[in-house]
Design a binder for these strands. Sequence first.
RNA 1: GCCCCCAUCGUUCAGUGGCCUAGGACACCUGCCUUUCACGCAGGCAACACGGGUUCGAAUCCCGUUGGGGGUGCCA
Length: 457
Amino acid sequence: MSGVRVRFSPAPTGYLHLGSARSALFNWLYARHVGGTFVLRIEDTDPDRSRDDLIDAIVENLAWLGMEGDEIHRQSVRFDAYLEVAEDFVTRGLAYRCDCTQEAVKERLAAAGSAGGYDGFCRDRTVAAGPGVVIRFRTPDEGTTAWDDVIRGHVSFENAVLEDFVIVRGNGAPMFHLANAYDDLDMKITHVIRGEDLVNTTPRVLLLREAMGADDHPVYAHLPLIVNEKRQKLSKRRDDVSVGDYRDRGYLPEAMRNYLITLGWGPKDGIEIRPLAEIIELFDIVDINKAPAFFDVKKLDHFNGEYIRALPTEEFVARSTPWRDSGAAPVPPDLYERLAPFVQQRVKRLDEVAGLLDWVVADAPEPTPEDWRKVMGADGVADVLDGVIEKLADAPWDSASLEQVVLGVGEELGRKSQLPVRLAVTGARAGLPLFEPMAELDRDVVLERLRSARAKL
RNA sequence: GCCCCCAUCGUUCAGUGGCCUAGGACACCUGCCUUUCACGCAGGCAACACGGGUUCGAAUCCCGUUGGGGGUGCCA
């Protein structure tokens, strides 16, 4: 066990965001790589968000991806410690109380022609504690706050641009910077691996930490953001960001995990799809990329397809069963088991399985006009259909015989006979191998579909 | 506005001064396999944003430009 301690510290949101999942994963991977400790710390300093149901969703999705905290903490039960530190800051003159309303601050800022921040109005006033009174941390007016980021290199901020920020809310609850700085120190976190959207809060945390008496700070590694096709940070409103939604759509956790890892990092040998154990061995935060990465669902689909096909058939059946009956009609389990190998070979998501079997368990869908024209418009289709209808009337009803009959008719006529039969029976040009599923259908049903198609020629 | 960051094929990762006529993967295109599709196989298309330096030598180092992103809450 190395002394490395990393943490994933999400705010409770009721779902696990893709970006958060990736951050968690990189922390977890690094901990496993060096034999360190992965701490899960729920940052529920906002009382409105400190709800068990919001937290459970995150824990469950992390577990789905194969991660669980070696330690689990919750900031809402540690308020006293944070508040004590804040009081200490006030008595030491490092922080002060402020009773400015947010509106008043905004007005003064606007009048001064400034866009944001706080103007230091209460810095030298003496405000008594009370409802609505916040505590602000006094940031230095001079100097710089900087650190050497593992991924970004040297990052530095002029203290002058840092405004005095709130560390305790008017309702008495601590703010995240305070709790975050305190806990990283208290929990002896050695490496902070998190999204780049948090770089600019790092100086605050560093300053707070220093004020708490720390003479060092964790190693920071700010991950590149995951972006959408417009190269913007993934957002809940615009993009599909909920890990749970991907699970519902039939992505395998191991595929999702493997794909997420390739966003911002890649093994030197270029082999992206590989066992977790190998990834843990190869992974290191120093090799993480700086540039934002686009979340490419098509590539995720490819990964997922690879993982699906690699599953032993029984496992594929078991894992795809929750999606089995979501099509036009329920699929009988024994039938599903017989046809599963064919299904497994052609789905990229588990939620596609039912659609492939619709024509077997329900009426065949109406062919698209284009498909109909391309297939049924060919020469000799009527003869093919007539021949197949005739021979199928008393042929043995098993897949081998069906194949023999259909292909046999084609050979006699010197035509490819599968496509017209396929379109007539399944309603589509593409799909499962024809004869095995067709043998599952009753003779009457097949003949009826063939006759109906023949009649429409 | 101010602060911070980023910049190799459409996408993603590799490449850390010469091995690069820049490699892998996804996507796309073409064949092969197959009387469907998919899988598989063989090919193809396709990038170092621009301009200055430094150096015998730059995708790799420095500066600038342009472009993009993030932040700027009593959310985290």
